[in-house]
C-alpha cells in the first residue's frame, strides 16, 4: 500500500512539473507563504515586546504619499506604509485560510469516511446533515454565524467559513470512500481479518488524500475572499490590517484620486486567489490516478 502511494506522489509531481503555469503558481504560493510567515514574525515580535509596529504607526505628515523610493507602494490616509500593511494582510489571509481548513477538514473527512464506510443509518444521518447545511444561503449564513457566536472578532469568521466549507469536502470524501470500499484491496483486507477502523485509516485514507489536498488548495482562496468581504463590512478583524479593511479605507481615497492603496491591495488579493485556484486545478489533474500521460 505505501509503495503505491509513493509512486502516485512522484508521478503527480512529475506531471505537475511539466505544467509551466502550475509551476509559476506554485512559486507564487511559496512566496506568499514566506510573506505570511514573515508577517507573523513581525507581529509576534511587536506583540511580545508591546511596541507599536511600523505598519500601525500613524504619521499624518506622511499621509497620502504616492509610491516612491521611501514607500514603494505609497502610504495610506494615516501615513502608514501600504506595502507593510499589505504583508500583514497576507498573514491574516493565511490565518483565515488555515484555521478555517483546520475546522472544515477534520469534520468533512471524518463524517465522509464514516458515511461511506459504514453506510446504512450512519450514511443516512451524514447525508441528511450535509444536505441541511448545504441548503443554507452561503454568505448570509456565514454572517449569521459570525453574528451570534458569543465572542466578537475572528472566531465567528472562522467558525462561519469553516462550518460551511466542510460540506463539499464531506461529499467528495464520501464518494471516494464508497468507490474504494468496493475495490478488491478492501475486500482483501477484510478477508485478512483487519478491523474497520484500521482499513479505513490505514488503507482507504491514503487513497483519498489527494481529494483533501486539492480541496484545501481550492477552498483556501475562497475563504480568503469571504473574509475580505466580511472585514470590509466591519465584521471580524478590527485593528489589524486585513485586506478587506484596507479596501474599505482605500475606497473613498480612490475617488479622491489616490489610486495606489486600492490598486496594490487588489493586485495582491487577485494574485493570491488566482495562484491558488490555478494550482488547485493543476494539482487535481496531476493527482488524478486515472489520467493517462
Amino acid at each position: 500500500m505505501i509503495k503505491q502511494g509513493q509512486s502516485l506522489w512522484s508521478d503527480a509531481w512529475r506531471r505537475l512539473k511539466k505544467d509551466r503555469i502550475a509551476m509559476v503558481c506554485l512559486g507564487l504560493v511559496v512566496l506568499f507563504t514566506l510573506l505570511a510567515v514573515y508577517g507573523e514574525v513581525v507581529y509576534f515580535y511587536h506583540h511580545a515586546k508591546d511596541i507599536t509596529p511600523a505598519y500601525q504607526k500613524i504619521n499624518l505628515d506622511l499621509a497620502y504619499q504616492a509610491p516612491g523610493a521611501a514607500h514603494w507602494m505609497g502610504t495610506d490616509g494615516l501615513g502608514r506604509d501600504v506595502m507593510q500593511r499589505l504583508v500583514q494582510g497576507v498573514r491574516i489571509a493565511y490565518k483565515v485560510g488555515i484555521i478555517t481548513s483546520l475546522i472544515a477538514i477534520p469534520i468533512g473527512v471524518l463524517l465522509g469516511c464514516l458515511a461511506g464506510f459504514y453506510g446504512g443509518k450512519v450514511d443516512d444521518f451524514v447525508v441528511w446533515l450535509y444536505s441541511t447545511f448545504a441548503s443554507m444561503p452561503g454568505l448570509l449564513f456565514i454572517l449569521a454565524i459570525a453574528m451570534v457566536v458569543p465572542e466578537n472578532g475572528l472566531l465567528g469568521v472562522y467558525l462561519g467559513i469553516g462550518l460551511t466549507t466542510w460540506v463539499g469536502l464531506c461529499r467528495l470524501v464520501r464518494g471516494e470512500v464508497l468507490k474504494h470500499k468496493e475495490q478488491t484491496y478492501v475486500q482483501a483486507a477484510k478477508a485478512l481479518g483487519l478491523g474497520s477502523g484500521r482499513i479505513m485509516f490505514k488503507h482507504i485514507l491514503p487513497n483519498i488524500l489527494h481529494v483533501i489536498i486539492v480541496t484545501f488548495t481550492l477552498r483556501f482562496p475562497a475563504a480568503v475572499g469571504t473574509e475580505v468581504i466580511m472585514s470590509y463590512l466591519g465584521i471580524g478583524v478590527q485593528g489589524e490590517p486585513s485586506w478587506g479593511l484596507m479596501i474599505d479605507s482605500a475606497r473613498m481615497r480612490l475617488w479622491q484620486g489616490m489610486w495606489w492603496e486600492m490598486t496594490f491591495v487588489t493586485l495582491a488579493l487577485f494574485l493570491l486567489v488566482l495562484a491558488f485556484n490555478l494550482l488547485g486545478d493543476a494539482l487535481r489533474d496531476a493527482l488524478d490516478p486515472r489520467l493517462d500521460d
Binding site: 441548503s135 444561503p137 448570509l140 449564513f141 454572517l143 449569521a144 463590512l233 465584521i235
Partner: peptide, 29 residues
Amino acid sequence: LGINAILSSDIDVVRALVLIGALLFVVAN
C-alpha cells in the same frame, strides 16, 4: 435588508432570511 440586519443585529430578519433562503434551496432541488 439582510446586510442591514446583520450590521444592526436585527435577529429576526436575519433568521427569516436564512430560513427562507434554505427552504427555497430545498424547493429548487
